[in-house]
């Protein structure tokens, strides 16, 4: 605190006119950045409560006729977004659990200096960062394993990344060795040491890795697109792709509509509200986890 006050004092003494001008420009530019980031988000949020094209033609209209929650009503009536939501929870949750268990265990084993064969294992893992088989051989393998059109095709491949193993290993390496030694002298087995001492200390890294794994899987669509065929298995992102990119209206959303122009209008409205429904949970939650994201990125850079 005193350091900051101290440097502030020096600054006020020493700041020249040009420096102050630069700081002012800096403030203006940063405000501009904030505007650029927020305007598209607010546009979609507002648009989801307005009749289509009102924002373009009237701006933020005060006419109550222009406001509607029809888009949201139709989303909840149809159910495909909701089912996608549940599927996504299942896939992202399963993926996260597998990813965490596998990489924490491996990371711990590799953090132990005396582990015989450590180098060979590291090379085995690191090699996958340099070279991979590519899309087609991976797809053929998944098909050969009979995982096509099952949730396992989303949950298993890619759950173990070298990056996560290395992050976990770095974290465990930084823990003081004395903890383990003391427990060992007390006669605890390696397994008990891991469960009783290491794991409770590993909560932050587990949380960080889980956060990144979950969000990554939640927002992904490509694997689901190539591996899943049944629409009932679609995760949220694939349902969104149909609505937003392919312009397909879910049948349950237009059950009552026949006129083409009306369908067009509804499909526009549903685009806005489905973006909000799909994105809002993460956007509301991430500020609570902000410090973990920062921690995660920093742990990553330590390597």
């Amino acid at each position: 605190m005193s350091k900051i006050a101290h440097s502030k004092k020096i600054q006020t003494i020493n700041n020249s006119k040009t420096d102050q001008l630069l700081l002012l420009i800096n403030k203006i530019l940063l405000s501009l950045v904030v505007v650029i980031v927020t305007v598209p988000l607010l546009y979609v949020l507002l648009g989801s409560f307005l009749q289509p094209n009102i924002l373009v033609s009237h701006g933020i209209s005060l006419n109550p006729d222009h406001w509607t929650i029809d888009g949201y009503v139709r989303i909840f009536q149809d159910g495909s977004i909701m089912r996608g939501f549940l599927n996504s929870v299942l896939y992202a949750g399963g993926f996260t659990i597998v990813s965490i268990i596998f990489s924490i265990l491996a990371g711990y084993a590799l953090s132990i200096d005396e582990l015989v064969g450590k180098k060979a294992f590291m090379i085995f893992f690191l090699f996958t960062m340099f070279f991979n088989g590519g899309l087609i051989p991976t797809y053929l393998l998944i098909r050969e394993l009979g995982l096509i059109n099952t949730p396992w095709a989303i949950i298993l491949p890619g759950a173990v990344t070298v990056w996560n193993i290395i992050l976990a290993r770095t974290y465990f390496k930084a823990l003081p060795n004395e903890l383990k030694e003391a427990a060992r002298i007390d006669g605890a087995s390696d397994f008990m040491i891991f469960i009783k001492i290491i794991l409770p200390l590993a909560k932050p890294i587990i949380f960080v890795l889980a956060l990144f794994a979950f969000i990554g899987q939640w927002n992904a669509y490509f694997n689901a697109m190539i591996y899943l065929e049944d629409r009932s298995l679609y995760p949220l992102q694939l349902v969104l792709r149909e609505i937003l990119i392919q312009n397909e209206v879910q049948p349950g959303m237009i059950a009552d509509q026949l006129a083409r122009a009306e369908m067009q209008r509804i499909s526009e409205m549903i685009k806005y509200s489905s973006i909000v429904v799909a994105s809002l949970p993460l956007l509301i939650m991430y500020p609570f986890f902000q410090k973990y994201f920062e921690k995660g990125v920093m742990v990553g850079s330590l390597k």
Binding site: L105, A106, F125, T128, G133, I136, P137, T138, L141, L156
Partner: peptide, 23 residues
């Protein structure tokens, strides 16, 4: 126990990373 800890990750990488390399 340490090798047991390593085995899920090794197996998974072997299957999903190395087999496609052969493929």
């Amino acid at each position: 126990i340490l090798y047991l800890f390593l085995s899920p990750a090794v197996l998974s990488v072997l299957i999903f990373n190395y087999i496609p390399m052969y493929g």
